[in-house]
Design a protein around this nucleic acid. Structure first.
Ligand code: SF4
Ligand code: SF4
Lengths: 130, 130
DNA sequence: GATATTGTAGACTCTAATTATCTATAATTA
DNA sequence: TAATTATAGATAATTAGAGTCTACAATATC
């Protein structure tokens, strides 16, 4: 069980945008060069952030990505949710109804305490130390 | 990012043993039949629990598995650690030194709050409700 | 000591997810 | 219209997860 690299790239991209003039527009190419990955690949990741309404994209000349929210409103969890999805970390198909299951309940609550922590941590808070 | 099925099987096995006379010896075949998986596959999983000293195995006639600890000492985390390993959920190779990294620090602490929760939850506590 | 029983190690297979890349297309500005 | 920028789609490589099968080692019982 590991976070995907996509989550890593997404977190870094947001951190990068906040760090380098949070109101600027950033081009895909510039951002992708930072990680040495292809622009189309990063695009797929950033498109998830667009769908999550964390950033906005505009095509065409002078286009690029720009933050959609105030930095105080962008938490680690917001980004992670966009790239990792919302499914539970623990699930099973042995019984087909997990509700009322004690094992599931514990695992789910454990997941929730982690997520609450990440929801309360904003990315801008740590950017100044990078 | 999801927990592996091996973790699911491991948790269920321990819960099963606690529920069905915690001092008995259980044969691999009996346990595997519960999940409809091959005995050798479950063996690989249970061997991890043996290495983690949670259960003990004895081969030969009248052999099987038996709990190694008092039920008060077996937490969710103990079992999960055995099957999922101890590596961090979040890691990266972009910078090769993660220590001092702010992103890593947040992600690691988030993971830790989940793990602390799971360390405090003992399996026997929920068995009675299954 | 031979035999039946039980767990383990190793080789191996199958599938699905992750991690990408490349090409083509759509939208926008100048 | 041409240049620029993001996105969708097809596709491929790699890895991790999930599982089986065969052979083997250890133990008890006769
Ligand atoms: S007891 Fe819970 S975790 Fe176990 S098989 Fe049933 S629903 Fe799944
Ligand atoms: S800043 Fe931290 S998470 Fe990002 S690449 Fe460096 S070590 Fe990894």
């Amino acid at each position: 069980m590991k976070y995907t690299k996509a989550t890593n790239y997404a977190l870094h991209t947001i951190a990068y945008m906040i760090k380098n003039n949070k109101d600027d527009k950033f081009s895909l190419q510039i951002l992708a060069d930072n990680f040495n990955i292809s622009a189309t690949y990063l695009s797929k990741i950033l498109t998830e952030l667009v769908k999550a309404d964390l950033i906005q994209s505009t095509p065409g000349v002078k286009g690029g990505y720009v933050l959609r929210k105030r930095v105080e409103e962008i938490s680690f969890m917001d980004v992670i949710k966009a790239t990792e999805g919302t499914g539970a970390l623990f699930s099973c198909e042995l019984h087909d109804d997990e509700s009322g299951c004690q094992i599931f309940k514990v695992m789910k609550e454990a997941e929730n305490v982690m997520k609450r922590y990440l929801q309360n941590k904003k990315i801008y808070e740590i950017v100044q130390y990078m």
